[in-house]
Simulated assay, not measured.
Amino acid sequence: MIAAASDAIWDNRAACGRNYRVRCTGGTNQGVPEPCRGDSVVVRVVDYCPPGCRSTIDLSQEAFSQIADPNAGVINIEYEQ
């Protein structure tokens, strides 16, 4: 389970290799009214989400599908290292 980190947590590459527990807290669009699965997932940051990235943590498809309906596309999350 992997992810890319945005500037919010990238910390000049210090986040690379860190593990974060991520949980879906809700959807961002009307298309999928209840996107969260109720689970959390632990991901390892392996990449940088470049400037303009609209995410704090950009999850791999596998990690995303563990915590949310893939059809949701974008979700709100909470996370901790």
Rank of each mutant, 00 (worst) to 15 (best):
19 N>I: 11
40 S>L: 00
1 M>L: 13
35 P>F: 05
31 G>E: 08
81 Q>L: 12
66 Q>R: 15
70 P>N: 04
44 R>T: 15
1 M>R: 11
50 P>Q: 08
49 C>K: 01
68 A>I: 04
55 S>R: 14
32 V>M: 08
43 V>Y: 01
49 C>N: 05
52 G>M: 07
23 R>A: 15
80 E>A: 13
53 C>Q: 05
43 V>Q: 04
73 G>S: 07
56 T>C: 01
72 A>P: 00
16 C>H: 11
53 C>K: 10
70 P>H: 01
39 D>W: 03
79 Y>T: 05
24 C>V: 02
74 V>K: 10
15 A>P: 07
46 V>H: 04
44 R>P: 04
51 P>M: 06
53 C>H: 02
18 R>E: 11
63 A>F: 00
51 P>T: 11
9 I>N: 02
54 R>A: 12
64 F>K: 01
42 V>Q: 10
27 G>D: 00
64 F>L: 05
6 S>N: 13
74 V>F: 07
40 S>F: 07
74 V>L: 13
3 A>W: 01
67 I>W: 00
60 S>G: 09
79 Y>Q: 09
9 I>H: 02
79 Y>F: 15
14 A>L: 10
32 V>K: 03
54 R>E: 11
42 V>F: 00
27 G>F: 00
31 G>I: 07
4 A>Y: 01
20 Y>E: 03
37 R>P: 00
8 A>S: 14
62 E>V: 11
40 S>H: 12
12 N>I: 02
81 Q>K: 09
45 V>L: 12
29 N>M: 06
21 R>F: 00
65 S>D: 14
78 E>A: 14
77 I>N: 03
35 P>M: 05
66 Q>A: 14
7 D>I: 13
74 V>I: 13
11 D>V: 07
34 E>G: 06
10 W>S: 13
66 Q>I: 11
8 A>K: 15
37 R>H: 13
25 T>G: 10
25 T>A: 07
73 G>E: 11
7 D>K: 15
39 D>H: 10
21 R>Y: 04
34 E>D: 14
34 E>Y: 14
42 V>G: 04
16 C>V: 10
39 D>C: 04
53 C>P: 08
77 I>Q: 04
2 I>A: 04
55 S>F: 10
28 T>G: 05
7 D>V: 12
32 V>S: 06
31 G>W: 15
69 D>K: 02
23 R>Q: 13
21 R>V: 14
22 V>S: 06
29 N>E: 11
75 I>T: 01
66 Q>K: 13
39 D>P: 00
7 D>P: 06
47 D>K: 10
45 V>C: 09
10 W>A: 15
49 C>G: 04
52 G>V: 09
57 I>D: 03
42 V>L: 03
46 V>N: 12
70 P>E: 02
42 V>S: 07
72 A>S: 12
77 I>L: 06
69 D>Q: 08
5 A>I: 08
26 G>R: 03
80 E>K: 12
54 R>T: 09
48 Y>C: 09
4 A>C: 14
15 A>E: 04
8 A>D: 12
14 A>C: 03
5 A>Q: 07
8 A>R: 15
15 A>V: 00
1 M>V: 09
62 E>Y: 09
74 V>D: 11
76 N>S: 13
38 G>Y: 02
